[in-house]
Computed example of a mutant assay.
Amino acid sequence: MNISVLGCGRWGSFLAYYCNSVGHNVTLWGRKNSRNFNALKLHRKNEYLILPDEILLSNSLEDSFGTADVIIISISSQELRGFAKKLNLIDNKEDKIFVLCMKGLEASSGSRLTRVFKEEMGNNINVAVWVGPGHVQDFVSGIPNCMVIDSENIDITKRLVNILSSDLIRFYYGQDLIGNEIGAASKNVIGIAAGMLDGLGYTSLKGALMARGTREISRLVGAMGGNSITIYGLSHLGDYEATLFSEHSHNRKFGEEFVKNKKFNKLAEGVSTIKALIELSKQYDIELPICNALYRVIFENADVSGTLINLFLRPLKFEF
């Protein structure tokens, strides 16, 4: 099968590497002046992996688009709408399967990424998400994990699982697109909070954070019409180890560096997702205490230690 991966950062380059390893013809697209793409073009490697010679590198969206049966997109969540507008100018979209591999929400609207994509590409587009735990550094070392593929069309979900499964990644069929998208995005927010607790020396509170984080997001998913139980699956709770504890997690590291007044130069999708979740909390009238606390700390310069400690020492209430 012909697969094109659009986006050549840490995750995109791995997706191309992985799809090639399970027997597909792969094209990896990157922007012409992209530092990541130029490094791959010159050396066939980045700090995480070496690209096999069979993977074709391209700067042409039209060429990458034209021959592909499956198009995997791995770019910044906040760039998706503009990127989809460009893709919409290319013909023969309806016979492709698009797979979104970003874990985020549109900050300005709170919209799920599949909704953003369909708003720009049309409702007849076949679009799925690929979410769940796993770091490039672990995968390229041969450490396996479990992930989820979900879409509104179970036949598309099953087809993708069948062509992508391997001993390295065991895929599960997703059955709740709302829950899996919100869960995958919001676990990055909980990851930022975990990093802040690490930076403050309050690591022992991460257990409470995990328990309350899942409850908070499950209420939101239920209000949005999804299955609140999905949050206890791979897209959210199942990704906590990789996000709340791993040294490889950009979101956890951002939180830790933030409380130490250090600048973090890599993409932490959870920062924009905080804004999106605050927007959703207003739309659905759902209280999101952790998200609100992080918003006050990051965007309103509230005291980090006092705000987070007060979060866990709120007035007495029943747990459930």
Rank of each mutant, 00 (worst) to 15 (best):
Y232A: 13
A39N: 12
F264E: 04
E54R: 14
K41T: 10
N251D: 06
K206C: 06
N38S: 08
I73K: 01
E300W: 00
N188H: 09
L280N: 13
V259M: 09
S272Q: 10
L6I: 14
I217M: 12
D303K: 10
N25W: 01
C19D: 02
T114L: 01
D239C: 08
P289R: 08
L42W: 00
L313Y: 06
R10I: 11
E300R: 13
W29M: 11
L197K: 05
N46D: 15
A276L: 06
A194E: 02
L160Q: 04
G134N: 07
H236D: 02
S58H: 08
E319M: 03
G179V: 04
I286C: 10
N265P: 00
D303R: 02
M210P: 00
L177G: 09
L87R: 01
L100C: 12
M1P: 08
I163W: 01
K282D: 06
N33G: 11
K41Y: 12
S235M: 07
G183H: 01
S281C: 03
K260G: 03
L311F: 00
F37M: 15
L57D: 03
R170G: 06
L220M: 10
G213I: 10
F65N: 15
R115D: 15
E247N: 14
L308I: 15
G82L: 12
T67H: 12
R219H: 14
V221D: 02
A223Y: 01
A185Y: 08
F98R: 02
K41I: 01
S34M: 01
L209I: 10
K41R: 13
V221P: 10
E62R: 09
T27A: 11
L87D: 03
C8Q: 01
R159G: 05
V22I: 15
I73V: 15
I75C: 06
I309L: 13
S305E: 14
S60P: 11
A128L: 03
C146M: 11
I278A: 10
V161E: 06
G82D: 13
M224D: 05
A68P: 09
M224P: 04
D69Y: 00
V26E: 09
G179K: 05
K158D: 13
V304M: 01
H250A: 14
M102A: 15
G9Y: 02
G213W: 06
F245A: 14
K206E: 04
V271H: 06
L6T: 05
L100A: 10
S34I: 02
A268H: 05
I73N: 07
L200A: 12
T273D: 08
K253V: 03
I178G: 08
K41F: 12
S34H: 05
L51C: 04
V297I: 15
S4I: 08
E106C: 06
A128E: 07
D63E: 15
D91V: 03
A84Y: 07
S141G: 06
S109A: 06
N25K: 15
V297Y: 05
G238L: 11
G23R: 03
L57G: 09
I156V: 15
V221I: 13
L234P: 01
Q175T: 12
K317D: 05
I178L: 11
E279W: 00
L313F: 10
L200K: 12
L197N: 07
E62F: 07
N2G: 00
